[in-house]
Design a protein around this nucleic acid. Structure first.
Length: 340
DNA sequence: AAGTTGAGCAACCGCGGTGAT
DNA sequence: TATCACCGCGGTTGCTCAACT
C-alpha cells in the first residue's frame, strides 16, 4: 500500500544519469519548479521515475550544493551532531549548508567511522570502545587547580579523552555514573575557570569552552552555568542546585548563576537528548528545532556571562548522570585538574 | 600488464508518515 | 475510517577508479 509501483520501472531508465538527462531535469525545474516529483519525469521528457528525479536533484543538481572534500571543521560538526542525533542524516545535513544527507552518510560510513574507531571511540555510542575505568591517572592533582568532591557516593568513572593533537584540538571525553544522593555536595574550584586536565589524555573536562555534544541517557542531570551556553546539558524537574562564584567578585559564593534564574532554566527531560521542555511549557521541541536556531534561550543574563570561576560549587538534591559524552574545541593547555 | 582489493560515491529499495479523497 | 498516492528518509547495493600485488 502506498508504495510506488516498481512494476512500471521496466520501462524506466535506471542507473547513472547522462548529461542529457541532467540537462532536461535542470531545465524543467528551472522553468517549472518541482511541486510534484511524480509529474516531473513526464513533463521533463525523462524516462525516470519521480523518485529518481528528486534524488538526482537533491544530491547532485541543486545549485546550492557545495562540492568537494569535507573540511575538518565539517567533519567535527558531523561527529558532534551524530552524537546527539544519531543516524538522522537529514537533520545533520540541515546544519551543513551545501551538503546532502547522502553525502554525509557516505562520509560517515566510509571515513569517519573508521577514524573514530582508530581513536578508540565507538562510532555508534560515541563512547570509548574499551569501556576503560578511571584510574589514578584521572586523579592527578596539580596543586594549583584542584577540585575536591565530597559526598559523591557513587563513582565517577571517566572514561577516555582523546585529544587530537592537530591544530583543531578536538577532544572527547565520556563520563558515566556520576551520582550524588546527598543534599549538599561541595566542589572547590580553583582560580582557573577551566577545570580540565589532560595528562595522559584522560580526565573530566568542565570548561566554559567546552561544547557538550551528547548525552546518551540520563535520569536526572546536573546543570551548570559552564554548560549553559551550549545548552546541551539537561536539567530535569528534579533540579540540582549549583552555585558558582561570580567572576567579577572575589566572593566565591556571590551571585549564584541560578539565583532567580532557576525558573527559566530549560528543562530537558527526555533520554538521548532529542527533545526538551521549557519550564511551564507543555510542548516539546525537537533537537532539530533547537539546532536550527528556532529555540530562544531564556533570558539569564547573569548566567550566560558566568563561566565557572574560583569558589565553591554547591550541589543540592539528588542527581545522577549516566553517560555523558563531551566534545570540546579550543583546548587550552596547562589547565588545572580535577580530583575526585 | 593483468588481476585484485578497497575507498568513494551515486543511485536504488523499502518503509513510515502525511494529506487527499 | 479506509484507501491511495506521494514524499522523505535511512539502509543498502553496485559501479568506478585508483592503489596495490
Amino acid at each position: 500500500m502506498g508504495k510506488q509501483s516498481y512494476l512500471h520501472k521496466q520501462k524506466l531508465r535506471r542507473g547513472l544519469w547522462s548529461p542529457e538527462e541532467d540537462e532536461k531535469l535542470l531545465k524543467h525545474i528551472a522553468e517549472y519548479g518541482h511541486t510534484s516529483w511524480s509529474s516531473v519525469p513526464k513533463l521533463a521528457g525523462l524516462q525516470r521515475c519521480g523518485k529518481s528525479c528528486r534524488l538526482r536533484w537533491i544530491n547532485y543538481l541543486r545549485p546550492d550544493l557545495k562540492r568537494g572534500k569535507f573540511s575538518q571543521e565539517e567533519e567535527d560538526i558531523i561527529i558532534e551532531l551524530h552524537a546527539v542525533l544519531g543516524n538522522r542524516w537529514s537533520q545533520i545535513a540541515a546544519q551543513l549548508p551545501g551538503r546532502t544527507d547522502n553525502e554525509i552518510k557516505n562520509l560517515w560510513n566510509s571515513c569517519i567511522k573508521k577514524k573514530l574507531r582508530q581513536t578508540g571511540i565507538d562510532p555508534n555510542t560515541h563512547k570509548p570502545l574499551s569501556g576503560i575505568e578511571g584510574t589514578e591517572d584521572d586523579k592527578i592533582s596539580s596543586g594549583s587547580g584542584t577540585l575536591k568532591q565530597t559526598e559523591l557516593e557513587s563513582d565517577l568513572t571517566l572514561m577516555q579523552c582523546i585529544e587530537d593533537s592537530t591544530t583543531n584540538s578536538i577532544g572527547y571525553c565520556s563520563l558515566s555514573k556520576l551520582c550524588c544522593s546527598t543534599s549538599t555536595t561541595t566542589l572547590s574550584v580553583s582560580s582557573n575557570p577551566l577545570l580540565w586536565h589532560n595528562q595522559t589524555n584522560r580526565g573530566l573536562g568542565l570548561n566554559p569552552e567546552l561544547s557538550c555534544s551528547s548525552i546518551t541517557s540520563a535520569t536526572t542531570i546536573v546543570s551548570s552555568s559552564i554548560f549553559y551556553n551550549s545548552m546541551d546539558l539537561k536539567a530535569t524537574s528534579d533540579l540540582p542546585y549549583w552555585e558558582g562564584g561570580n567572576p567579577n567578585s572575589s566572593s566565591s559564593k556571590s551571585s549564584s548563576f541560578l539565583n532567580g534564574g532557576l525558573s527559566s532554566w530549560p528543562h530537558l527531560t527526555t533520554e538521548r537528548g532529542n527533545k526538551y521542555l521549557l519550564p511551564g511549557d507543555s510542548e516539546e521541541m525537537k533537537w532539530s528545532e533547537y539546532l536550527q536556531g528556532n529555540f530562544l534561550a531564556p533570558s539569564l543574563p547573569h548566567c550566560q556571562s558566568q563561566p565557572l570561576h574560583a569558589g565553591d560549587l554547591k550541589v543540592e538534591s539528588h542527581f545522577e548522570l549516566e553517560s555523558l559524552n563531551l566534545c570540546f574545541q579550543n583546548h587550552q593547555p596547562e589547565l588545572p585538574q580535577l580530583q575526585f
